[in-house]
């Protein structure tokens, strides 16, 4: 037997039996790992170490896309660039004009708020630009990989916005990159309200990029198609007043206690390439006692925040 048998299998039955025992043990370990990962968040460190080790791999995956972008930019004709420059200059002028109005409004708002003795901070949040890496995740979950980690000031629970509205929040912050969960992920929900009449609800992800569901709006609630849905600032995670979605569908069914309200996210979640991470710790109850008093119950469905003393000022200065 020995001569004819291939070199690596010294015994005929050894690999199978050993593999079966090892398999039973590892399957058990997997179940334990999954339970711990699902129920608690004690495995962040392990995930961080593995993710940091994997970072070069993900950067390599990203390379062809960056090369294509770079080539496209370099071969764009001069006239197109001049034209674009012109257009951007005009846009900037326009935005600057709007900004002036905003500054005036902000000042007025602050004055009115001080009259009302409210403690809500309306100063502009400090932000950090993060790029979404073209790395595919599990197709059934709406997650993206960002190229900013704890080194640059990212932390768990940090809100992400783009120029159109709320995009999501950071779910895992690693050393050099971080994973973000989008607002359309089935496990995500954020507190919102309608701008028209202040009705409060949650915006729950449906697993489709084009739709959020607003549960618990009563059948006689005043909701119309086209209503703008903004963050309410309750829960203390997302800053208040950022656009989230626009109501697209309202179904009243007398047999149900609540209306079925659907809204389309204002941010283009399936096309966005760059997002802004909001660095200010808006959830800090010491800085905003008013916000904490309104929403003392943290959302259990979202990942726990680590009370980590990070330095947003230094990170913001770098960019």
């Amino acid at each position: 037997m020995g001569k004819l048998e291939s070199r690596q299998s010294k015994s005929l039955f050894a690999p199978e039996t050993a593999a079966s025992i090892r398999y039973a043990l590892l399957a058990l370990l997997s179940v334990v790992l999954m339970t711990v990962d699902h129920r608690q968040h004690h495995l962040e460190l392990m995930r961080n170490v593995l993710a940091t080790a994997l970072y070069p791999l993900q950067v390599t995956v990203q390379l062809p896309f960056e090369a294509a972008d770079w080539l496209a930019q370099h071969f764009e004709s001069r006239s197109a660039l001049v034209e674009e420059n012109e257009r951007l200059r005009e846009k900037q002028l326009f935005i600057n004009a709007q900004l002036q109005k905003l500054t005036a409004l902000e000042a007025e708002n602050r004055r009115l708020r001080s009259l009302l003795e409210s403690t809500v901070n309306v100063a502009a949040e400090r932000v950090l630009i993060a790029e979404i890496l073209m790395v595919d995740f599990d197709p059934y979950r709406h997650q993206v990989l960002l190229n900013r980690g704890t080194q640059q000031g990212a932390r768990i629970g940090q809100p992400l916005i783009d120029e159109r509205g709320i995009v999501g929040q950071v779910a895992h912050a690693n050393l050099l990159d971080s994973t973000a969960i989008l607002i359309t992920d089935p496990a995500h929900a954020l507190p919102v309200q309608l701008t028209r009449n202040g009705i409060r609800s949650l915006a729950v992800g449906t697993g489709r990029f084009s739709e959020l569901e607003l549960p618990n709006i009563p059948n006689n609630g005043d909701v119309k198609v086209g209503d703008l849905v903004v963050t309410s600032g309750l829960g203390g995670r997302f800053p208040r007043g950022y656009p989230v979605a626009r109501v697209t569908r309202v179904e009243f069914d007398p047999g149900r206690p609540f209306a079925r309200v659907f809204a389309q996210p204002t941010a283009h979640l399936d096309r966005v390439r760059e997002v802004l991470m909001i660095l200010d710790d808006i959830a800090d109850p010491a800085a905003h006692p008013g916000a904490a008093a309104v929403a003392p119950v943290p959302d259990a469905a979202k990942p726990d925040r680590h009370p980590k003393p990070d330095k947003p000022a230094a990170a913001a200065g770098r960019h």
């Binding site: 990962d37 392990m46 791999l57 790395v135 995740f137 979950r141 990989l145 779910a171």
Partner: peptide
């Protein structure tokens, strides 16, 4: 880790 799924899945 790479796909952001439950550890162990």
């Amino acid at each position: 880790t790479a796909q952001g799924t439950l550890l162990g899945q």
